[in-house]
Every structure is written in structure tokens, then in C-alpha cells.
Deep mutational scan, measured.
Amino acid sequence: TKVFYNGTYVEFNNPEKAKKYAEKVAKKVGGTFTEKNGQFHVE
């Protein structure tokens, strides 16, 4: 499961961990995250 952010991504074996990371990054940058095709995108 990949989490895309700012033109790069971090890959996780565990979708649950990926979601938590996406939430954390989104919170940090004051943005939101969306799930597309089983991957997370932070905006």
C-alpha cells in the first residue's frame, strides 16, 4: 500500500499502517488524504 505525498511515496505492507501514516501526514501539513485504488494520497 503506497502513501503518496508531495511527488514521492512511502510503501507499507500493511494497509492499516498506511492509513495511519496518511492521517498523520495530512494532519501535520493541514491537508486531507484520500484513498484511490487502494492507495492513499495526501493533499
Score class of each variant (00 low, 15 high):
Y5I: 09
E16A: 11
K27E: 12
P15N: 08
Y5G: 01
T32N: 08
T32M: 10
V42P: 00
T1A: 08
Y21L: 03
P15R: 15
F12I: 03
E11S: 13
V3E: 00
A18F: 01
V3I: 03
K36G: 05
K19D: 02
K27Y: 09
E23H: 08
E43L: 14
F12N: 00
F40M: 05
T8K: 12
E23R: 08
N37C: 11
T34K: 11
E23S: 08
E35A: 06
Y21F: 13
Y9K: 04
T8F: 13
F4E: 03
E11M: 12
E35I: 12
N13F: 11
K28T: 11
E23D: 07
T8M: 12
N6Y: 10
V10H: 07
E43Q: 13
V3W: 00
K28W: 14
E35P: 03
V29D: 04
K36W: 09
E16G: 09
N37H: 09
H41L: 09
A18R: 00
E11R: 08
G38R: 04
E11K: 09
G7Y: 05
F33R: 03
A18S: 02
Q39T: 09
E35G: 04
N13T: 13
E23T: 07
K36Q: 10
T32Y: 14
G30W: 05
E43F: 15
N6G: 11
Q39L: 06
V42T: 02
K17A: 15
T34A: 08
V10T: 10
F40E: 01
F33Q: 03
G30K: 08
T34E: 07
T8V: 11
N37A: 08
Q39I: 12
G38W: 03
G38A: 05
F12M: 03
V29K: 05
K19T: 03
Q39P: 00
H41I: 13
V10Y: 09
A18N: 00
A22N: 00
E23V: 08
E16N: 09
K36R: 14
A18K: 00
K28D: 13
K28C: 15
V29S: 07
N6S: 07
N14Y: 05
K2P: 04
A22E: 01
K24G: 09
T34H: 13
K24S: 14
G38M: 04
F33M: 12
K28A: 14
Q39A: 14
E23P: 00
N37V: 04
K24D: 14
F4D: 01
A26I: 04
Q39N: 15
V10M: 10
Y5W: 10
T32G: 05
A18M: 00
T8S: 12
K19E: 06
N6Q: 11
Y21H: 08
Y21G: 01
N14A: 07
G30C: 13
T1D: 02
Q39M: 11
E43I: 15
T1N: 08
K20C: 08
F40D: 02
N13W: 10
K2N: 04
K19N: 04
Y5L: 07
K24H: 14
V25H: 05
K17T: 14
K19R: 15
A26N: 02
K17F: 11
G30T: 04
E11I: 13
F4M: 04
K17R: 12
K19L: 10
F40G: 00
E35T: 07
G31L: 06
K36P: 01
K36V: 14
H41M: 08
E23N: 06
T34V: 14
K28G: 08
E35K: 07
A26M: 03
N6H: 10
G31A: 09
Q39C: 08
G30R: 07
F12W: 04
N14T: 14
N13C: 11
F4N: 03
Y5C: 09
E43C: 10
G38L: 04
T1H: 14
V42G: 00
G7V: 02
N13H: 11
F33P: 04
T32D: 05
E11F: 10
E11P: 05
E11D: 06
K2Q: 06
V10D: 03
K28H: 13
Y9V: 13
K19Y: 10
E43H: 14
Y9Q: 06
E11W: 14
T32R: 10
K36S: 09
F4S: 03
V25A: 06
T32Q: 09
Y5Q: 03
E16F: 09
V42A: 01
V10S: 06
V25K: 07
K27A: 12
K20D: 13
N13A: 14
E23W: 07
K24E: 15
N6A: 10
T1V: 14
V29M: 10
T8H: 13
Y21A: 03
A26G: 03
K24V: 11
N6E: 08
V25Y: 08
Y21E: 03
K2T: 06
F4P: 00
N14W: 05
Y9A: 08
Q39D: 15
G7D: 07
A18W: 01
N13D: 15
N6I: 05
N14D: 15
E23K: 09
E43G: 09
T1G: 04
T34M: 10
A26C: 08
P15E: 08
K24R: 13
K28S: 13
K20I: 12
K27N: 12
K27F: 09
E16W: 09
Y5D: 02
V3Y: 00
T32W: 14
N37R: 06
E23L: 09
N6K: 12
Y9T: 08
F33K: 03
V25D: 01
T8R: 12
V25W: 13
K20T: 10
A18E: 01
T8E: 09
V25R: 04
Y9I: 11
Y21T: 02
N14P: 01
A22K: 01
K28I: 14
A18H: 01
V42D: 01
K24M: 15
K28F: 13
Y9R: 03
V3N: 00
G7M: 05
F40S: 02
H41R: 06
N14I: 06
T34R: 11
K17Q: 15
V10P: 00
N6T: 04
V42R: 00
E35M: 10
F40V: 03
V29E: 05
K36Y: 10
G30H: 10
F12Y: 03
E11H: 10
K2E: 02
T32L: 08
A26F: 02
K20W: 12
Y5N: 03
K17E: 15
G31R: 03
E43T: 14
V29N: 07
G38P: 00
T34P: 00
E16L: 11
V42M: 03
G7R: 05
T1I: 14
G31H: 04
A22Q: 01
K36N: 08
V42K: 01
E11A: 11
F33I: 15
Q39R: 04
E23C: 09
F12D: 01
A18D: 01
E23F: 06
K17I: 14
N6M: 12
E16T: 10
P15F: 15
E16C: 09
F4V: 06
T1M: 07
N13L: 12
Y21M: 03
A26R: 01
V42N: 01
G31K: 04
A22Y: 02
K20E: 15
K2M: 09
N14H: 09
Y21D: 01
P15L: 11
A18P: 00
V42H: 03
G31T: 07
P15T: 10
V25I: 15
K24L: 15
K2G: 09
T34F: 15
T32S: 11
A26W: 03
N6V: 04
K2L: 10
A26D: 02
E43P: 03
V29I: 14
Y21W: 13
N13G: 11
V25G: 02
Y5M: 07
K36T: 09
K28Q: 14
T8W: 14
F12V: 02
V25N: 02
H41Y: 15
Y21I: 03
V10K: 13
F4Q: 03
E43R: 10
Y5S: 03
G38T: 03
V10N: 04
H41A: 05
Y9N: 04
V3S: 00
P15M: 13
K20M: 12
F33V: 15
T8A: 11
A22C: 05
E43Y: 15
N6D: 09
G38D: 05
F40H: 02
A22R: 00
E16R: 09
F12K: 02
F40R: 00
G38Y: 04
K19I: 07
Y5F: 13
T34I: 14
Y5T: 04
F12E: 00
Y9S: 08
G7P: 00
A18V: 00
F4A: 02
Q39S: 13
G38H: 05
G7S: 06
K17N: 13
H41F: 15
T34L: 11
K17V: 14
V10W: 13
K19W: 07
Y9H: 07
A22F: 02
T1C: 12
Y21R: 02
E16V: 10
K20P: 03
K17H: 14
G31P: 01
K27Q: 13
N13P: 13
K2V: 08
G30V: 04
N37Y: 08
V25C: 11
G31Y: 04
K27W: 08
K20L: 13
K19F: 08
E11N: 08
E11V: 14
F33T: 07
G38K: 05
Y21Q: 02
